[in-house]
């Protein structure tokens, strides 16, 4: 009895230790799945290309050499050149910067708006919950791509607006996921215990509920990276996203589509890059899900 009445800091500290242990175990368990390692390698390679594009790229992505237009892959231009004689490898590297940057920014924005909404809806329940969830339902009425299209076309095409549009399109998914998680976590005994010890709503929500909701959010965020990259590529391909001359994989594909019969490799390279990156994020998301909740394996 006496030990149970020990200072309230005791159980808190032990949860924290367990949480930090999980962050060590998690990568180990994820990498044990056979598909995870190649995915991580691919993502890291693309990320390095994106960050160090200005160092690694052999040419400027905007430098036009009309004499070298539409060259097939060679030693000088490993991925060939486009119709304006621009080096494809360099453009792919700079394109990775835009594609990954928008993808990452959009996911962060989606989480920054969606997580608080989900936390509040699930914790407050009642009227607040009704209002937030109806709003999310209204937004879901518009397919993500259409929603982003409408928003970008209204706000005007730019990297910033594209990021906002894709990010906001992802909010309902995050909010619904977090809310569902909060609804189940808030009924646990440790939440009741925290409340009995006099913890306020903010403390309960941030210290006791939120840390126990992170697992599915991490999985969802990883999968969303794939969707966001795909969405950026789709919108740029349709010509409503990033404006030329900024290279992105989607706009490069749109450009090369016109030269399909003369220079098919121009269309193959950006598509393979998008496919590999999106596939890696999706498979990594699946591996994370298995690592965080082994009962779902094989589903």
């Amino acid at each position: 009895m006496i030990s149970q009445q020990a200072t309230p800091a005791e159980p808190l500290r032990s949860t924290r230790r367990r949480t930090s242990a999980r962050w060590v175990v998690l990568p180990v368990r994820v990498l044990r799945s056979p598909m995870a390692l190649p995915c991580v390698v691919i993502i890291v390679i693309f990320a390095v290309c994106a960050v160090l594009a200005s160092v690694l790229a052999p040419y400027s992505p905007r430098e036009q050499r009309s004499a070298e237009a539409l060259e097939s892959p060679s030693v000088k231009h490993p991925l060939g050149t486009d119709n304006l004689g621009r080096d494809m490898l360099s453009r792919m590297m700079y394109g990775a910067r835009v594609s990954l940057g928008i993808g990452f920014g959009a996911v962060v924005l989606g989480l920054a708006v969606g997580v608080p909404l989900g936390l509040i809806a699930g914790y407050q329940r009642g009227f607040t919950d009704e209002v937030i969830m109806r709003l999310m339902e209204i937004q879901i009425a518009f397919p993500g791509l259409i929603f982003a299209l409408a928003l970008v076309s209204t706000l005007g095409p730019s990297v910033r607006n594209l990021l906002i549009a894709i990010g906001i399109a992802g909010v309902p998914g995050v909010a619904r996921l977090v809310r569902a998680q909060v609804l189940s976590v808030r009924e646990r005994d440790y939440v009741l215990a925290a409340r009995a010890l006099g913890a306020g709503s903010a403390r309960i929500l941030l210290r006791h509920i939120w840390p126990n909701c992170t697992a599915p959010v991490i999985v969802a965020a990883t999968l969303s990276m794939g969707y966001a990259v795909l969405a950026e590529a789709s919108l740029s391909f349709l010509g409503v996203g990033v404006r030329p001359p900024t290279p992105t994989w989607g706009s490069m594909l749109q450009f090369s589509f016109g030269y399909l019969s003369i220079a098919p490799y121009l269309s193959i390279v950006p598509g393979v890059a998008i496919f590999l990156l999106v596939l890696s994020f999706n498979l990594l998301g699946d591996a994370l899900r298995d690592a965080l909740d082994p009962s779902l394996r094989g589903r």
Partner: peptide, 22 residues
């Protein structure tokens, strides 16, 4: 099924045009 979700549909379309039409 996993791979199919990751393929950008516009790229798949371009590749199909390349093979079947060109």
């Amino acid at each position: 099924a996993v791979a199919a979700v990751a393929v950008p549909s516009f790229w798949l379309a371009i590749m199909m045009i390349l093979l079947f039409a060109v």
